[in-house]
Amino acid sequence: MMLLIFAVLVAALALAWFDRERLAIAALILCLVLSAGLFLWEVYSPKYGFAMPWITVERTLLPLAAEG
C-alpha cells in the first residue's frame, strides 16, 4: 500500500512538472485518500479501536482532609 501511495505521489509530481495540471491534481487527491486510508488502518488497534488509553488520566481520590 505504501509503495502504491509513493508511486501515485511521484506520478502527481511528474504530471505537475509536465504541465498536466488536472491529472496531477487528481493524482495528488488520490494519493491523499490512499494515505488517509492507510493512516486509519495503521492507528487502529483491535484492542483499543482508535482510543488511546495510555494517555487517559484519572483523578486520584484523596480523603477530603488531605485535599486541604
Binding site: 505504501m2 501511495i5 509513493f6 505521489l9 502527481a12 509530481l13 505537475a16 512538472w17 504541465d19 495540471e21 496531477a24 491534481i25 495528488l28 494519493c31 491523499l32 494515505s35 492507510l38 493512516f39 495503521e42 492507528v43
Partner: peptide, 24 residues
C-alpha cells in the same frame, strides 16, 4: 516507520502546490 513515511508524503504534497505555482 509507516507514520513517518506518511508525513513525508504530506510534505511532498505541500511542495506539490508550490511546484504548480512555478509551472503554471
Amino acid at each position: 516507520c509507516p507514520l513517518c513515511l506518511l508525513q513525508r508524503v504530506a510534505m511532498f504534497g505541500i511542495c506539490f502546490g508550490i511546484i504548480l505555482d512555478f509551472r503554471n
